[in-house]
Design a protein around this nucleic acid. Sequence first.
RNA 1: GCCAGAGUGGCGGAAUUGGCAGACGCGCGGGACUCAAAAUCCCGUGGCCCUCGGGUCGUGUGGGUUCGACUCCCACCUCUGGCACCA
Length: 964
Amino acid sequence: MVEERAERYDFKEIEERWRDFWGERGFFRAPTSDIEKKFYYLNMFPYPSGSLHVGHGRNYIIGDVVTRFYLMRGYNILNPMGWDAFGLPAENAAIERGIHPRDWTLDNIANAKEQFRAWGIEYDWDREITTCLPDYYKWTQWLFLKLYEHGLAYKKKATVNYCPTCDTVLANEQVVGGVCERCGTPPEQKTLEQWFFKITDYADRLLDDLKTLDGWPENVKKMQENWIGRSVGAEVTFHTQDGEEIVVFTTRPDTLWGATFMVLAPEHPLVDRLTTPEQRADVDAYRAQAAKQTAVERTSTEREKTGVFTGGYAINPVNGREIPVWIADYVLMTYGTGAIMAVPAHDERDFAFAIKFGLPIIPVIARTDGRTKSYIPAGSADDAVEEALREAKFHFEKKEDGLYLTMDADRADEYAKIVQKHLKLGSWTETAGGRWLFIFHDELIEFDSVEADCAIMEHCHALDDKSRKYRTVMEMMSSFPFYADVLFHAEHGKIINSGDFSGTPGEQATEKVISWLEKTGKGKAAINFRLHDWLISRQRYWGAPIPIVYCEKCGIVPVPEKDLPVELPDVEFIGKMGLADIPGYAETTCPICGGPARRDTDTMDTFVDSSWYYLRYISAKNDEVPFVVEDVNNWLPVDQYVGGVEHAILHLLYSRFITKALQDMGYVNFSEPFKRLFTQGMVCHMAYRCPEHGWLFPSEVKDGKCPHCGRELEISNFSMSKSKKNVVAPAEIIDAYGADTERLYTLFMGPPDRDIEWSEEGVRGAFRFVNRVWTLVVTNAERVAAAPTEEFDPTALDDAGRSLWRRYQRTLKKVTEDIEGRFNFNTAISAIMELVNEAYRYVDDGGDDGLVRAVIEGLILILSPFTPFVCEEMWRRIGHEDAVLDQAWPEFSETAIVEEQVEIPVQINGKVRARVTVPMEIASDAQALSEYVLANEAVSHKLDGKKVVKAIAIPGKMVSLVVR
RNA sequence: GCCAGAGUGGCGGAAUUGGCAGACGCGCGGGACUCAAAAUCCCGUGGCCCUCGGGUCGUGUGGGUUCGACUCCCACCUCUGGCACCA
């Protein structure tokens, strides 16, 4: 098709030509005051670490595509960028290199900006923010003061997680899986005076408002929901024998009558007073041991329960029963009240604990399935029992060692009567699960209370010496595997064995008990959260100083707003240090009395910096206020927020909290900062690991073997990271194929919310496509430039032309909808590829100049968000002098997409047996379509004379025939 | 253990509302161009069977609903992520 060789695609030259063009033309500068058709697109701002790899690029490339798309659609789109620049990695890197973290950070920022430039990713750089610079952290400190003013920042002595490696305390959220999120060290427990933000005040709203976030991924909302961990239940007050109160939180007040013991956290303040002299040594030893344990050890579910008896007793307020008080490390001081009532019959943990320590277990909630089991040991009943049971229609399994029965609870009493008649002297059996009866030769005892437990055990001990090793009925039954699945359940069901409340149906149980508790003053409805207040003090240098002064006379004094920022002292960076290590920093005067005072020497958690940055972009340069209220209210909430799912809890929860707090203070008029959220997947790549020499660069690997020892390597896919040596540098790709190719491939390789694997072959495929487009355009450039510009009539075209025109319209629709709605850039690109394939065939055969012009111009425009450099170049090559971004996004017409005829598959008895080409006007009518198809020769041939029982025609789609 | 999400050719993935499974791309096979190679272009490409018309199986497994199921329902398996002694 190409007579003379087409001009080569010189991506280096092209990209160099346009690299600064868009920025210079100011396309990406958004006016703050103009709020018509606004769209606030935001990428989570990066932490400026070493260098960006192609995986990082994904996030920003997506943003750039969306921004360019909305620009062409006439929106005022704001897409700003900044730097989350405070934090430990900068300090650690600075220590390693012997430089100041500020220099390291600012260097990285400069590099990253250069990287964005190479990628063709444009921002409104006039709004750049850098959290480690005083013009930003001044306002982070302002935020702290506002929270303090409104009682949302407070200082308290608390047991906190302290990471010995990072030399600082950690927020609850920064302890992941029991270890420090950053370095993997199990944190130590320390008691320190620290600053907290009162996020728990907002727990309910943070949870409830998740329902309003329709544009958020379900999994992120679920993660936040779990994190907040709202539990509804009651607080019940128990008293010790000495009259001391022990308040417990429970989600199951309906099980109160089954509370046969209590457990306190080892750290619980009452433990000392409860402990009797005889138990003192055991208790002290246990507490010392518990204190030493790391969180990981202590919270392992696998672990067997441990604990000791305090010697003290409490009174169960519902039945006046005396119950022992134990301490155990499975009860956490940090949740609820640090004390629980143990209901072993209906709580798995309490059950395990009670079995281990021989504490009584009394069922107080009926099984909903009524499943009841019984075992009659061989020789314990006479031979007639089998016949009698069979006659009464009880099903059982006979094994060598006895009869195994499973029945419904309703028939347990009938069963007991039958069996009792046949029991031999000195034997017994029992029913367990739906009904609890102990059947002795001379007596039937219902297992419904601690007294019954004792009476039954007494009986058994008298009859069988072997039963003496069991302390409780449940312990005895649990030794027998057949019963294992009926001894314990945690379902809601009818209350039993609970005095006047017995018989209360499951649905009403909790509610009824709570109102009774409230009436009698024994307890009240209560809600508990897993969420804790946010600990924000950090004992490190590289953060925003907490703007607080301590005066001997005036106490805690906030630094007046006019004195902000409290600047980080500009000292030589000498390694791991906090502000407390800097001589003179703390010394100051009290803003109130002028007397000597000391500054707080902690800095704020970096998540404070990032919890409000999306507001600052609106007024990035304003030095009077953190943000202009009207402008922020106009621009926010963010229309589309995009970032990694790793921030699902920390950053997003904190930002939502700060927004709500600012709303309550009257600074913003919205309650959620991010209307829509998209979490992009990670980019993975092969990583090679030698069992002896660790991670290897792909370039070092020879035939899958280690270059040092020749050993077979472990090859697996991991998200790109420096430590695994599997990162691909953008420069490698840009040098070899250009930034357009990298952008296109990154978007084409898969749906953006999923993890994807980077492949060199895939990059070449994208490069090939860009080349194909280039060749198509430059070989037709003169023709397009010379073609008539007026509208042409698509109906006047030949078949191939009309087909291409429809394809073009269909592509416009698909690309528009894929970018706007689903973020499915991969399918948008494949549609453009199909268009290019068809366009090639068309121009090969000559074709209509007007159509070629329309298609090529449109092609360049819809491809331009993906590959902006080459599109800008091609746009000029076909005779334009203005820029792509000056053009409107092409509109499509639904009517132009409609095909003239369609191939309708015909199903006969559910299988496609024929295809019939049907004119559209017939295919769009169900009746006409089925008649047309039935009249078709190929179809009637397939019918083979059989009778059509039913014909279902779906207009434009298919026909389904049922024949007999 | 609990809660999400996923499972489709050799590979990445598509099928947007229950309507032609495998679009598009990679890889592979064949061909053209070339002294040759690379690049590029064209053709083919789920498995099995075939008389070359087609037939048949096929979307993790087993059931079900339906004229029709990758899609909906039930049960299960595997993988990924989050939480995990949270009372």
